Simulated scan of single mutants.
Amino acid sequence: MSEDEKKCSLSCSECAVRNCYRREKQYPAFCLTEEYKDAVELTRRLYESDGIDGRLARAAAEIEGEYYGRLTRLEETIRFAMKLGVKKLGIASCIGLLDEASIYAKIVRTAGIETKTVICKVGAIDKTEIGLPDQLKVCPGCNESCCNPALQAQVLNDWGADLNVLVGLCVGHDAIFTRHSKAPAVTFIVKDRVLGHNPAAAIYTSKFYYKRVLNETTFPEPKTPSRQKN
């Protein structure tokens, strides 16, 4: 690999300087801040504007400055919504976390914000209807509805949500939801069935109990067969 190729393969995860935060050191040769100088200026203008990106950026920065280390993420999402002047807050919830979503909605309403919750199984489309073999269901032989994040987003779009909050959507379903959501979307709870919805624990224990995450050959084998071919 040439020196230019090595430089191109490096990014922020290989940086030990982190000068982009305090600007008190020298940037490394592969620094993206240096490489994207023109884009830096364009994004600065974006965030100083009165458009939605500017409003989101300033509200987020204000929350960090005013409450750093003092608020839980639950409280931060509500303060964030209040700073934006949100009147309608949509909640896209996993069916398995509907109890948590219901409590969250109740707390949000105490701030004078209207809520609407839509669970992932809305529409009740069986997984086999989208081409998944019955053997790959969690419970083969049963009706097992697939998650429907596109419909979750549509319901909240039709309702006129100013901001949407994700509560435990699965990996991938969160991507579909954010693609279809007209309103900005933030995450309150991240789904991790194994670690009690604390996915960072796999990183913190990667050198000890969860050494397997550093060796892809030790990952559990998936079920078979793969998706049906049309």
Score class of each variant (00 low, 15 high):
residue 130 I to Y: 04
residue 61 A to E: 14
residue 195 L to W: 14
residue 188 F to V: 05
residue 49 S to I: 01
residue 160 G to F: 07
residue 79 R to K: 14
residue 177 F to M: 07
residue 144 E to Q: 14
residue 155 V to T: 03
residue 20 C to T: 02
residue 141 G to D: 06
residue 139 C to F: 13
residue 110 T to E: 12
residue 66 E to D: 10
residue 199 P to V: 09
residue 95 I to W: 12
residue 158 D to Y: 09
residue 190 V to R: 08
residue 207 K to T: 11
residue 80 F to I: 00
residue 211 K to H: 09
residue 122 V to W: 02
residue 16 A to F: 11
residue 190 V to N: 09
residue 228 Q to W: 15
residue 62 E to W: 01
residue 217 T to D: 14
residue 225 P to C: 07
residue 183 A to Q: 04
residue 32 L to W: 06
residue 43 T to R: 12
residue 181 S to H: 05
residue 22 R to Y: 11
residue 91 I to D: 00
residue 200 A to W: 11
residue 120 C to G: 13
residue 73 R to Q: 09
residue 113 I to H: 04
residue 95 I to Y: 12
residue 36 Y to F: 15
residue 150 A to M: 05
residue 127 K to G: 06
residue 185 A to Y: 01
residue 8 C to Y: 14
residue 132 L to E: 06
residue 20 C to K: 00
residue 58 R to W: 03
residue 158 D to N: 06
residue 159 W to D: 03
residue 183 A to F: 12
residue 45 R to S: 03
residue 71 L to C: 08
residue 194 V to I: 13
residue 161 A to Y: 03
residue 211 K to C: 10
residue 113 I to Q: 00
residue 230 N to F: 13
residue 169 L to E: 02
residue 12 C to V: 08
residue 176 I to P: 01
residue 17 V to N: 06
residue 182 K to I: 08
residue 169 L to G: 00
residue 107 I to W: 02
residue 93 S to I: 05
residue 97 L to C: 08
residue 92 A to W: 00
residue 119 I to G: 08
residue 195 L to R: 10
residue 149 P to Q: 02
residue 80 F to Y: 04
residue 106 K to D: 06
residue 96 G to C: 07
residue 8 C to D: 14
